[in-house]
């Protein structure tokens, strides 16, 4: 049986060939995956964030040991063996990358976007995070520190974004719906 990397390369080769032959487009595949993501219900990470915003005890447990804090949710497997949640504050903005490949906590963040694997994102976000974030439409003021967290096979990171004022006092479903995947990676703020 082929090992993981070998089969992954064959999948990538097949996709490339089918795109070259004009039978598929990369954007078409991305769109389908995005649609899929929406249809499989709210991302688990959004549920966790929506709760942490209003439950101080849960939030503190989450920041202390995210793996244990989310255990009761039963998001088993899917690369959350060791999850670390990093909190955005008015003083600090966090962003997640995996510089070597594309480690990503599937179980809490859903399907990863294609650009997350892009070598340009992976290298540039470490070197010039403010510039990369600005390209995503997120301008972090100079006085706000930017911290870049490098995921690995052993540790995955998720950002706990700031809750916008408009979400204070709204019900949980509304909060969950407001939390987009990109805010958990740290390339966007919750609007």
């Amino acid at each position: 049986m082929a090992d993981r990397s070998e089969v992954e390369l064959r999948a990538q080769a097949l996709e490339t060939l089918l795109i070259q032959k004009g039978l598929l487009t990369e954007a078409g595949i991305d769109d389908r995956i995005a649609l899929f993501n929406e249809r499989v219900g709210p991302m688990n990470g959004a549920r966790v964030v929506a709760r942490a915003w209003v439950d101080a005890e849960f939030k503190s447990a989450l920041l202390r040991d995210a793996t244990s804090a989310i255990a009761p949710y039963g998001f088993v497997g899917g690369q959350v063996d060791k999850l670390v949640v990093v909190e955005n504050t008015p003083e600090v903005h966090n962003v997640v990358v995996c510089t070597l490949c594309s480690c990503y906590p599937w179980a809490v963040m859903g399907l990863p976007p294609k650009w997350y694997k892009d070598p340009a994102y992976r290298s540039r976000v470490v070197r010039e995070p403010r510039k990369v974030l600005a390209e995503f439409g997120l301008n972090v003021p100079p006085e706000r520190e930017v911290r870049v967290w490098d995921s690995s096979a052993e540790v995955r990171y998720m950002v706990l974004p700031l809750m916008p004022e408009r979400l204070a006092g709204v019900d949980e479903d509304t909060r969950i719906a407001a939390i987009q995947r990109d805010t958990l990676i740290g390339v966007a703020e919750v609007q």
Binding site: R4, V7, E8, A11, Q12, L14, E15, L18, L24, I29, R32, I33, F36, V40, G77, G78, Q79, S102, Y104, W106, L111, P112, K117
Partner: peptide, 14 residues
Amino acid sequence: LDFEAPWQSRVFVM
């Protein structure tokens, strides 16, 4: 659906 890696979801939608 339980995908363990991005390539799996891509092959599935392909």
